[in-house]
Structures are given as structure tokens and as C-alpha cells.
Design a protein around this nucleic acid. Sequence first.
DNA 1: TATATTTGACCACG
DNA 2: CGTGGTCAAATATA
Length: 137
Amino acid sequence: MGSASASYSAPGGVFGLSPPESSRRDSRKRRKDRPSWVKHTFTPHFDGHLWRKYGQKNIKDSVFPRLYYRCSYREDKQCLASKLVQQENHEDPPLFKVTYTYEHTCNTAPVPTPDVVAELPAPATGDALFLRFDSTG
DNA sequence: TATATTTGACCACG
DNA sequence: CGTGGTCAAATATA
């Protein structure tokens, strides 16, 4: 074995199917009460926390896929905060609908000043596009 | 090498 | 039966 696992060719080999124990049976507990709120922004990232994408699925009746994000500290700080990002418009400045679930239990804020306005890609000139970032939700 | 990311498959509910 | 959601493994990159 010499060096690590780089010499592997095909997991399971040609000896028929050899899938790992698919014992994920009682996992996936459905939470009955899930506090969640929706917000719109051009920069679904940079909201004051770090996120890690864990899935992407296409929604029926939707040309845009839905991205699933979770707190990078989920295991470290037990931060149950999760976030769903779905593109709603195909305009030049694509608007993303972000659905937040649970609050961040990790007090660590890697982003000191989430200047969302500074990330705006400069909307069309003369466009009466007004964005309201009310935090009161 | 480690980390973050990607894709596929599986499960549960209406 | 279909949809929606999550996890696992494999891959790409720094």
C-alpha cells in the first residue's frame, strides 16, 4: 500500500455491487415547527455568516434550481441555521429569494461589515429599481 | 493533504 | 406516484 488511497481504481471493483451500508434509516427527522422567514437580496452570500452548499435540486414549475446552504459551523457550534437560495428573476440583476431557517447559535461573525449595497452590480441607468433592505423583516 | 464543492440516490408525505 | 429535502461519496482547487 504504499501511498494512500490514490491507487484505487474503482470502489467496489467489478465484483458486483458492493455499496456501503445504507443504514441511513431513522435519520432525517422531520421537524414540526420550523421558524423561517424569507428575504430578497442580490447577494445571497455575505449575510454575516459562512455557508456551505450541501445540495441542489430543480423545482417543478421553476426554471431555476434551488440551492441548499447550511452554516459551516453546524458541527462546531451546533448552528442549526440553514438557508435556501432560489433565483426568482432572470433580469440582469438577478434577484434571489433567500429563506432562512433557525437562528445562528454561533456568535462568531466572520464578516464584520456586510455591506450589501456595496456589492450591488450597479443597476441599469435610469432604472427606477428601488431596493429596500429593511431589517425588520 | 485538507477543505469546499458537485452530483446522485433515498426517504417521507399528500 | 410525484415532489421536496438531506446525506454520502467523489472530485476540484489552494
